[in-house]
Simulated assay, not measured.
Amino acid sequence: MRTAFPGTDSDPPALPRVNAIVVGASAGGVEALLKIFRPLRRGFTLPIIVVLHVPDERRSLLAEVFGSNLAIPVKEADDKEVITPGTLYFAAPGYHLSVEEDLTLSFSQEERVYHSRPSVDILFESAADAYEARLAGVLLTGANNDGARGIARIREYGGLTVVQDPAQALARAMPEAALALHTPDFLLSLADIGQLLVELERIAC
């Protein structure tokens, strides 16, 4: 497990090629996600799919908020949508979001996971099934255990796993639950996670 990301040409980290990135967050997640996505420049080529726990009784404004603050295209995911490179997708409130084997997105209303729908676990596990080793999973701040099982599944398939350092998380429960199940490839600050995403895209090009 690496606890720092050098991000320099003289000391490049050993990273795999990935075809997609999945990210999960809960309490404190808006600020954390903005911090890791701000370094991404226009023309970023990897798709990013995000579950952020939000109340499901009202329309989400995440796509609008992030779209006005980031250089890459941002949208709320649609059911049966084909995953497009270079797009940041947010799960819609009230529905679990899955990645299908044909690399489309799908909605479901199965039981909540840790009181949450959408669930980080369902996104991560389905994406691992679809992308296998060509997937990077990132788990950030959160106040429950959602995502721990999913990021362990990504690791089982040989994908890259990244967990926010719980000492720097607004809510430690989510990253600590992940660490209790497996040792990630990287345990990083938000700033280093942002640089890692930049490097993953550079390698993929």
Rank of each mutant, 00 (worst) to 15 (best):
Y95T: 08
L97C: 08
S98D: 12
V99A: 12
V99D: 10
D102P: 03
D102Y: 07
L105R: 05
L105Y: 10
S106F: 01
S106Y: 06
F107K: 03
F107C: 07
S108R: 01
S108K: 03
E111K: 12
E111I: 02
V113Q: 06
V113L: 09
Y114D: 12
Y114Q: 14
Y114V: 08
H115A: 08
S116T: 01
S116C: 13
R117M: 01
R117C: 03
P118I: 05
P118W: 00
P118E: 12
S119F: 07
S119Y: 11
V120K: 07
D121L: 09
D121T: 04
I122M: 07
L123K: 01
L123E: 05
F124H: 02
A130D: 03
Y131V: 01
R134F: 11
R134H: 14
R134E: 12
L135N: 10
L135D: 09
L135W: 13
A136N: 01
G137P: 08
G137Q: 08
G137S: 12
V138H: 09
L139E: 02
G142C: 02
G142F: 05
G142E: 07
A143H: 06
D146L: 04
D146W: 00
D146Y: 00
A148R: 01
A148I: 05
A148G: 14
R149N: 09
R149D: 04
G150H: 03
I151F: 06
A152K: 11
E156G: 02
Y157R: 15
Y157F: 11
G158F: 07
G159N: 05
G159V: 05
G159D: 03
T161L: 03
V163E: 04
V163M: 04
Q164H: 02
P166W: 03
P166G: 05
A167C: 06
A167T: 14
A169N: 12
A169P: 14
L170D: 15
A171Y: 02
R172M: 11
R172H: 13
A173V: 14
A173R: 11
A177Q: 12
L179W: 09
L181F: 02
L181E: 14
L181Y: 02
T183H: 09
P184N: 06
L187R: 03
L187I: 14
